[in-house]
Write a protein that binds this DNA or RNA. Structure first.
Lengths: 117, 117
DNA sequence: CAGTATCCCCCTAGATACTG
DNA sequence: CAGTATCTAGGGGGATACTG
């Protein structure tokens, strides 16, 4: 994130936006959070098929840094952490949703198996 | 493209869509094509700052394969090739635009220099 | 439960040279 | 003008083991 945001020069707003939500799992995470309002770490881990803990943590931190999601820690044992969309994150939903439909249409055209999200 | 589309298994429509328009330059190319209706290869090369011919060609081919742009070749000397949005490509514009605005807002918040697109 | 910490591979993208 | 063809580097992402 620091690299994406600082070291690598940003060309324009569109370029910036794509880098911020362009990770391999970001779209799906935002999407799952939409449907569930609030999700725990383990829940997300199960929802985002095949993601590793490393990538999940890393992606969640980037989304948090960009103020697209918020992270609430309950200091108890066992630990409990809840993730949810911020208002800004919710602003991305129309876009995400449109992409989903576009993707589904494309997959149908190409006769690919649609596993849904 | 063959790899992205075939070898690597697609998880869901959202995942698929992100791979298709998630390249480093795709958003900007679609955006420039919107403003100009039709653009020649060299024009695009100048518009998309710092892109190499290899990446430009590769990206244009992928967009064409996904039916987001069309490519018209004039068989004359010197060669002339024009690129334009398809109807399907044009369908992406509202969302590209949405992303641009979101990106601009974010950049302002972070006091980054906005070079426009 | 919710993460860290390493090690490592591969793929995207960049640099450079060449061509019908 | 509109591309190909190679070669290469960097970093995003994967696998695995460990922890407060």
């Amino acid at each position: 994130m620091s690299k994406k945001n600082n070291s690598v020069e940003v060309i324009c707003p569109l370029d910036y936006a794509f880098r911020r939500i362009g990770g391999k799992y970001k779209g799906r995470i935002l999407w799952y959070l939409k449907s569930n309002e609030v999700m725990r770490y383990g829940e997300l881990k199960r929802a985002v098929t095949d993601i590793t803990t490393k990538m999940l943590t890393q992606t969640l931190r980037e989304l948090e840094e960009d103020a697209l999601i918020s992270r609430k820690v309950y200091h108890e044992l066992p630990p409990k952490v809840e993730y949810s969309l911020t208002d800004e994150g919710a602003e991305m939903l129309p876009f995400i949703d449109y992409l989903r439909h576009w993707g589904a249409k494309q997959m149908e055209k190409r006769e690919m198996v649609d596993l849904k999200c």
